[in-house]
Structures are given as structure tokens and as C-alpha cells.
């Protein structure tokens, strides 16, 4: 008997000796054991983020003397030539879109990997 045939025979027998095992409630038992704490952690994260943002806004408002700089900058903007305003608006739009694209692409790569 050829050595190669003998090895092929052994591998075939090993594969055939491993029959399919019926689920028989196994998956349900695993699902019952899975942790369910994740949504709580996510809501905690959201509370922290929103809280920090609100605190930062309040701090900025107080430190900037009631947000007076905003009114000053808006007056300056209105004094700009129309072409400059257009360039500024288009530039800002492209910048935000690029940021969104980069975030979406990196998230897609993360999920695919």
C-alpha cells in the first residue's frame, strides 16, 4: 500500500469521523449567557459627552463676556464682499464634507476588518 494513499485515507477517515453536531439548544444557552451591559455603557458615554459639551459652552459664554465676539464677527462678515462670502461658504462646505468622508471611510475599514 502506497504511503500517500495511506495518509489520504487517514485524513478522510478523520474528517468523516467528525459528524455534524446538532445545535439542540446550544445557541440559545450561549445567547442567554451573553452580557447585556453594553447599552448602559453607551448611555453613560452619551451623558458624559453631552454634559462636557454643555459645560464647555457655558464656560465659553461666561469667559467671552456674554458671547459679544460673535456679534462683532457677524458684523465683520456682513461687511465682506459677496465673492468672498461665497468662497468662504463653499470652502466651509467642502471642509465639513471632507471630514465626514474621512470619518465614514475609516469607520467602513474598521468594520470590514
Amino acid at each position: 500500500m502506497d504511503e500517500k494513499n495511506r495518509e489520504d485515507w487517514l485524513d478522510r477517515q478523520l474528517r468523516e469521523a467528525a459528524p455534524y453536531i446538532d445545535d439542540d439548544g446550544f445557541t440559545a444557552r450561549v445567547l442567554q449567557k451573553l452580557p447585556v451591559a453594553r447599552p448602559q455603557r453607551q448611555s453613560l458615554r452619551a451623558v458624559i459627552l453631552i454634559g462636557t459639551t454643555l459645560l464647555a459652552c457655558a464656560l465659553a459664554y461666561v469667559l467671552s463676556d456674554g458671547g459679544r465676539f460673535l456679534a462683532v464677527e457677524i458684523v465683520r462678515l456682513t461687511a465682506l464682499p459677496t465673492l468672498w462670502l461665497l468662497v468662504l461658504a463653499v470652502g466651509s462646505g467642502i471642509l465639513v464634507m471632507a471630514g465626514g468622508l474621512v470619518a465614514a471611510i475609516s469607520k467602513t475599514r474598521e468594520v470590514q476588518s
Partner: peptide
């Protein structure tokens, strides 16, 4: 995840 378990449990 349950579907993944069903596929690979055996």
C-alpha cells in the same frame, strides 16, 4: 452573533 454560533457550534 447567534447566527455565527449556529454556524460554528458543531
Amino acid at each position: 452573533f447567534g447566527e455565527l454560533v449556529r454556524r460554528h457550534q458543531s
